[in-house]
Nucleic acid binder design. Sequence first.
DNA 1: CATTATTAAGGA
DNA 2: TCCTTAATA
Length: 576
Amino acid sequence: MSRVVGFIDLDAYYCACEVKQKPSLLAGKPLAVCMYETWKKSPDRSADMDRIVKSGGAGLIAVSYEARAMGVKRQMSANEARKACPELITVMVPTKNGKADLSLYKENGEKVVEILQEFAGIVEKRSVDEVALDVTDAAQKLLETTPKELVARQAVNVSHFADSEISLKASKISHEAARRGHEGQHEYTKNDDDEKNHLLKYSSFDYLLLAGAVVINNARKAVRERLGFSCSAGIAANKMIAKVGCGLHKPNQQTIVFPRSVAVLLKDLPLNRLPGLGGDLGNRISSQLNITTAGGLANISRSILLNAGFQDADNLLAAANGTLDEPVKNRANYKSFGSSKTFYKHPITNLTIADQWLSNFAQEIFDRIKNDRNQRNRAPTNVTISITTDKSHVTRTEKVHIGWSDSPQPIVRSAHRLLRRWAGTRTAHLDIVVLGLGVSNFIDLPANKASVMDLLTRNPLHQSKKPSSSAEIMQPSKKKRTIAELLYQQATTSTKKTTTVGKKDSSFFPSSNIDPEVFAQLPPEIKAELLDDRTRLLRQSAPSLGNSHLEQRQVKKKKKTATTTIDSFFAPRRPR
DNA sequence: CATTATTAAGGA
DNA sequence: TCCTTAATA
Ligand SMILES: [Mn+2]
């Protein structure tokens, strides 16, 4: 069943966030965002502070279109960039507790997703500034209420088409040039070729795509008007082609790729512009098979690909032919939170210093968790540290119980334990170059902050009327006084500190005070909640009742049924 | 003097 | 669970 997919990418995103912070100073200016100078020790500068750096400055990670016009490129150092463009304004990312603080960009990105959700039934957040939308339903609805010729007229007025001369020219640009903003990338100019598209005979699916383009244009307009971010988009029958189409015309433009235009679009498209082939795999394919374009790969036979060791031949060919059809996932928010820092030239040697940084990371992550769980009633159950030295990179993971805890301590303790798991007996000469901490594997929490008593007293009748006060939590209705009361009595009689009863932490019921038989009867998520984080008996996460596992369920199901599945645009497989 | 910080996913 | 690859700014 064919879908209508829109792929939206925000223009010069970090720069746009900075302009939004200080429009009077930055709007319309050649602007670049750079990393902070990691090798210097300087005071933190939060998002609302002046972060303009006049000299020095690290590598550029985002460049405004005004600056691109002057020859400033991503990945240049700030000093280098000022030579190309003396008027360039360089802003460093916000810093907090001695490290980059990217929350400004993440939070704006979440606001964008919220708006886009009004326009599409299925929304997949793909990165801090990219979103894929399945707008099939919305497009169909539009065609039900509006004459298709009118829809087509509207779409043509606001869109490029992939088979126009300027689009095909853009398709031939190198991956690198396309990413940094190639020549000829400028605000929308009406194009004769695009106009001609209006005179063509459209198939019924063409009309659906055109309707999708109108929906996407409305969505982009809403983002622009309500948040001040301009964005570009591609509209096509699948996610991969929509993304490729999105890259053709920026900024503030959108491109429609009709199915009949896919072959021309891909014919001369550099192979590494296909999503998933931008790295080693694409390079190996290029060199081993002597091809440079997606069209070139499409002409290679399956057996030759297999003989060359590319086991994923079918998917490679599907990508090269633009038929790879990975559905838009229904996932509008993050699956993991992380915090990390590079200690360039000054590796961490001492265990206690590493501990301090991990605590720092944990606090940052926990702030995000609190925010997230208030909105989505979920919390992560895995903690992972990542440690890079000159010679090695390792990750270590363990389960953690966070629930509605008000403290980052469970994460801190896990992180410190994991660090020791890696360090062994060493307390010095650790030589950590990159240290990172992350949380993942979210589970749904009960719908409000009631925690244990809420879990124990819930049933279909009770669920609609949730306890809203701590008094209610402490006095479950007579009917439900089963395990809940047993536990409650045990806790309050055997523990002197009855004042902690209202706390939403697992310390409320020290596991040592719970009758093992009663404990054994509890559902796994309650066991997890009751578990003191030092008694790490439960090794697998509790099954989720809500929908934060929806996607994982789908993935599991897919793995069972299909032999070769892809989860992203592409599932690169290494040749043997 | 100097990329850095995240996120997601696949394979073993 | 751990490692690797690819992607974004
Ligand atoms: Mn972007």
